[in-house]
Amino acid sequence: MLTQLSNLKNYRIIRALFVLVCLILGVSAHTLAQNQNKKKSAFTSRLLNVAGTTNETFRYNSTLTNGKPFTQNYSLSAKLPAGWQVIFRAEGVSVTALQVDSNATKDITIEITCPATTKPDTYKIPVQAISSADTLTLDLEAVVRGSYGLEITTPTGRLSDQIVAGGSKEILLEVKNTGTLPLNTLELSSQLPTKWETSFSPSNIEQLQPGQKADVKVTLKVPDKTIAGDYVSKMIVRTSNHETTAEASIRITVKTSILSGWIGILIILAAAGLIYYLIRKYGRR
């Protein structure tokens, strides 16, 4: 009998210990799961180094994480070189501050632009997200390769000319690379009044090095019976991959030919003579 009681007591003790161990293990597992799910405050970006030209936007896709047990408001800022600009976008909207819930993340697109005169180099750009409890820094780099620049004008800078209706005119254009990077495969085109025609010689330029110029001759043809007056012809040059484009608007004054003028005068005189003859013949009746 005593042996049975002793065994029963030992069984209860073992069972109690077993339940206690299970409770301890359960609490530990729950705590571990919570710690694993808990996020740490951070400001990260998929790309830290972006290369481009001064004509392009340096774009970084970043993520802001709030690891605190409460909602936070983060103000966004960037330390930029003089003349540079930055835009922060969240869900496609430009923002300067952002609210992030506890243990949540927000995607932020950082868009940085630089002046056209920026020298080729690697520029470090510290970006910060600051709240009452966090100061998070993201160190970005913008590698500026140079700039694309293009200009089309005339050698004298004069953007006006005259032409007789029904005739043609040769105009000399000058195309110049005003950037710091080479330009390849430049194509020439025009926007003209209805039925006007142009032809370019050459019609494309294979390459222009920085600072280099190229002369282009354009032949402009105006249809007969074009009404005298001022018209605008637009000359356009662009690279084949649309890196850059330039245009020049040339004012063309159309005049009637001398022959057309004399014909008009003769018609007027003939009409006046006919009227005079009719008056003399029928006016007395």
Rank of each mutant, 00 (worst) to 15 (best):
M1G: 08
M1A: 15
T3M: 11
T3C: 02
Q4R: 08
S6T: 13
N7F: 11
L17E: 13
F18C: 15
V19R: 14
L20A: 14
L20V: 13
L23Y: 10
L25Q: 03
G26D: 02
V27D: 01
H30R: 15
T31K: 08
N35L: 15
N35D: 09
S41R: 05
S41M: 01
F43L: 12
R46F: 12
R46E: 15
L47V: 06
L47I: 08
A51H: 04
A51F: 09
G52A: 01
T53K: 01
S62F: 03
T63V: 12
T65Y: 14
P69A: 00
P69Y: 00
T71D: 04
T71Q: 05
S77A: 11
S77I: 04
P81L: 01
W84C: 03
Q85F: 02
Q85S: 13
V86F: 01
I87M: 13
A90Q: 15
S94G: 11
S94E: 13
T96E: 04
S102C: 13
A104N: 15
K106R: 12
I108R: 10
I108A: 05
I110N: 08
P115T: 02
T117G: 07
D121V: 00
I125T: 00
I125F: 00
A129N: 01
S131E: 05
E141W: 03
A142Q: 00
A142E: 04
V144I: 12
S147W: 05
Y148P: 04
L150C: 08
E151C: 03
T156V: 07
G157W: 01
R158T: 14
G167C: 09
K169M: 04
E170M: 08
E170N: 06
I171V: 02
L172I: 13
L172Y: 11
V175Q: 00
T178E: 04
T180H: 10
L181E: 05
L181F: 02
P182M: 07
T185L: 14
L186W: 10
E187K: 08
L188K: 07
S190K: 03
S190A: 09
P193N: 00
K195T: 14
E197V: 12
S203V: 13
N204H: 08
L208T: 03
P210D: 08
K213M: 10
A228C: 12
A228E: 11
G229W: 06
D230C: 11
D230Y: 09
D230F: 15
I236C: 06
V237H: 02
T239D: 13
H242G: 10
A246R: 01
A246G: 02
A248G: 05
A248P: 05
R251W: 09
T253I: 14
T253F: 13
K255E: 07
W262E: 07
I268D: 15
I268H: 06
L274S: 15
L274N: 10
L278Y: 14
R280Y: 13
R280E: 10
K281Q: 11
G283A: 06
